[in-house]
Amino acid sequence: MKAKTKKKSRLQKFWDSVSLILASRVATVGSIMVLFWLVLAFISLFWTPYDYNASDFLQNLGPNPQNWLGTDHLGRDIFSRLMKGTQVVLLKTRLPGEGNIIIPGGVAIWGVIGSMALGVTMGLNAGYRGGWWDQVIMQILDALIAFPRIVLYLVVIAALGQGDLVVILAISITGAPGVARLARSLAMDIKTRDYIRAAETRGESVWYIMFKEILPNASGPLLVDGMLRVGYAIFAIGTLGFLGIGLPPPDPDWGNMVNEARRNIFSNQLAVIWPALAIATLVIGLNLFADGLREEMTRYQK
């Protein structure tokens, strides 16, 4: 037992998680689908076949040697737009204000980080402190869960206007209750352990116990849940884009590409299919990945 607690090197840890993924066929397929889009996103940082916003070609072309996936209703290359569209979702967030400040990490990623931070804070407080804290936090969560999330999106965005940060905020708020419930149940389980009693006896502060003692021991299920949530977030971003209130231009937004192409669906069906397929494959990939991972991890526990 003692030999096992020796710290593993970082490479070894990485290899452990890779083999965990490879052990499940579902997770492997999922990670391939996600990696495909990640690679495309990275390539698009430096190179796209054509300018993604320039109307360089004839309108509504089918696939041909120049435009692999054809062109849209304004004569823009769909493949370039699809590649560029991956960035806002996975790789970059545009901050409002002068100077076009861009921070790394896509809108979906930050949205999930936001909901994790919010949810974990609420869940740990409810679960560890119990009593009134639990009552009040659960009541707030109940109200948040009862709120239909699409209404929340619509109202928040109608209220604050379009923008990457607004979408992140909307995703954070709607995702938080789910995370909080999970974190709460984990905290309630972990707080009965002896090492928590020991920390309490040592006189550690409540926040230290929650974030240094409980959180690391609850991180596994939370991470898998977060992975699933990235899928939901992309789903939500696509839906918002489709409703015309998603990520603002100039960067192409997949959902909005579907929405625009939908109006020309009788003349150019492929323009609708490509972005729709892109969203579907990325979300399904993330779902498969998280699902397979969870299956493998619970198998470990058994």
Partner: peptide, 25 residues
Amino acid sequence: SITSLGATATPEFVTGIFLILIFGI
């Protein structure tokens, strides 16, 4: 299982568009 996972993970508007394409157009 895989089909239902795929169907659930596909956003409503994507499914709707595909159905419109197939059955409507």
